[in-house]
């Protein structure tokens, strides 16, 4: 069966790019639509594996309860915090006008 998935359309690629905040060009949309479709076709065979009852693995060596004590450690000097920033004002990171709502 491997690939019964509908092919990835240009519009879907545009939607993915929007979700991922990538201002892709029209040429890229054409290129990526084809390439992503091939890749997704190749990975779709993952669905052939009968794994319904198999627990997922997220880490190779299973660990749990890794904590740190609630202790204050030194923060970075503020010059260092802001040194790499594209724009700074009043010791804060300056960003252009935000259109979206706060979550």
């Amino acid at each position: 069966m491997s690939d019964e998935r509908p092919t990835l359309t240009r519009d879907e690629v545009a939607h993915l790019a929007q979700l991922a905040r990538l201002a892709v060009t029209d040429d890229e949309l054409d290129l990526f639509a084809g390439q992503l479709d091939v890749i997704l076709g190749a990975v779709a065979r993952i669905g052939d594996v009968a794994a319904a009852d198999i627990p997922p693995t997220s880490h190779a060596v299973p660990l749990q309860n890794v904590f740190r004590a609630d202790e204050v450690r030194p923060s970075l000097p503020r010059e260092d915090v802001l040194a790499g920033a594209p724009a700074v004002e009043d010791s804060r990171f300056r960003v252009p006008q935000i259109l979206g709502e706060e979550e």
Binding site: R68, D70, E71, V72, R73, P74, S75, L76, R78, V81, L82, D90, S91, R92, F93
Partner: peptide, 27 residues
């Protein structure tokens, strides 16, 4: 009301100068 942040050792104190309670993790 922990004294340090959820995932790093920066202080949670309210009202500090901007960006003084920050480190690689919380930035």
């Amino acid at each position: 009301g922990t004294v340090s942040k959820m995932f790093c050792g920066c202080s949670t104190e309210f009202g500090a100068e901007p960006n003084t309670h920050t480190c690689p993790v919380c930035l």
